[in-house]
């Protein structure tokens, strides 16, 4: 445990001294802030005004066509879908150097000869990346609290579906980071590590389009539906928590950490 915390502290400090953490968090804040305000918050408030006007003109026909403005229903799912696309670009930045740098610099040789297990090292690095990612989760939570402040009396935001959405977003990020960790363990080149992570995450996003387009059938369709990371989180974004989705993300994380561990061990027999 001692070694875990020591390594965790070092990795976390490295994120800020390097300064990958600032880069990732600033990029995320700017992009997500732009999308949120320009793409969701302003259109939503516009919609609310229009809706109120329609109601006042008492045109029942029109009013029925326009659904009542509900922040959680209209905004949250597509907002988080947008954020998960930003993640595809940012997760490789978070994970690319975690193990590959140790390999390139040779510092991994010392880790291998210290009385610590590979698992401790991997978990410490994973936890450090998760903490940086958690800052973005926190930012999302703040975004969603803003409408509550804007409207007098509040009551705009329904917390339970939003917590579900935040959980979905967190699991998506945690799974993405664990996948990135694999690639940082298999190469000593950070660019290769980042490129492979990016490619995989991109693929796991676009593979979800295939079933909707109707170009794949049968087993392939089921497969495409089930492996898409972003699709898996869609229901959570809507506030629907399925056990199968939770288990899916957990399996991805545990599986990825396991592969990373095996990959680190491989130097012992590969020679």
């Amino acid at each position: 445990m001692n070694a875990f915390f020591a390594m965790f502290k070092r990795e976390l400090a490295h994120y800020f001294t390097s300064p990958i953490a600032y880069v990732v968090l600033i990029i995320f804040s700017i992009l997500s802030g732009w999308f949120y305000v320009q793409g969701f918050l302003l259109p939503y408030s516009l919609y609310c005004q229009q809706y109120d006007m329609m109601q006042m003109q008492a045109n029942p026909m029109m009013a029925q066509q326009m659904p009542a403005p509900n922040f959680t229903e209209l905004i949250v799912p597509s907002l988080f879908s947008t954020f998960s696309i930003i993640l595809i670009f940012l997760v490789p930045l978070l994970t690319m150097r975690l193990i590959s740098e140790e390999k390139r610099e040779g510092t991994i040789e010392l880790l291998y000869t210290y009385p610590v297990s590979d698992l401790q090292v991997i978990l410490a690095k994973y936890a450090a990346a998760l903490v940086i990612f958690l800052f973005t989760v926190l930012l999302c939570a703040i975004y969603l609290y803003v409408p509550e402040l804007l409207k007098e009396g509040g009551g705009v935001v329904e917390w339970r579906p939003i917590l579900s959405a935040l959980l979905g977003y967190f699991l998506l990020g945690a799974a993405s980071i664990s996948l990135g960790l694999i690639f940082s363990a298999v190469t000593e080149n950070q660019i290769v590590s980042a490129a492979l992570t990016f490619a995989l995450l991109l693929f796991l996003w676009v593979v979800g389009w295939a079933p909707q387009s109707g170009t794949v059938e049968g087993v392939m369709k089921t497969l495409a539906e089930s492996v898409s990371l972003t699709d898996r989180s869609e229901d959570l974004f809507k506030g629907l928590i399925h056990l199968s989705d939770l288990v899916f993300f957990l399996c991805v994380i545990v599986g990825a950490l396991f592969i990373t561990m095996r990959s680190l061990e491989s130097h012992r027999w590969r020679g």
Partner: peptide, 18 residues
């Protein structure tokens, strides 16, 4: 091989904990 971004003391603390 050393973590060159760390201070001498910080690095030795880490090594000791490891």
């Amino acid at each position: 091989p050393l973590y060159t971004d760390m201070s001498v003391k910080g690095y030795l603390n880490l090594a000791a904990q490891m």
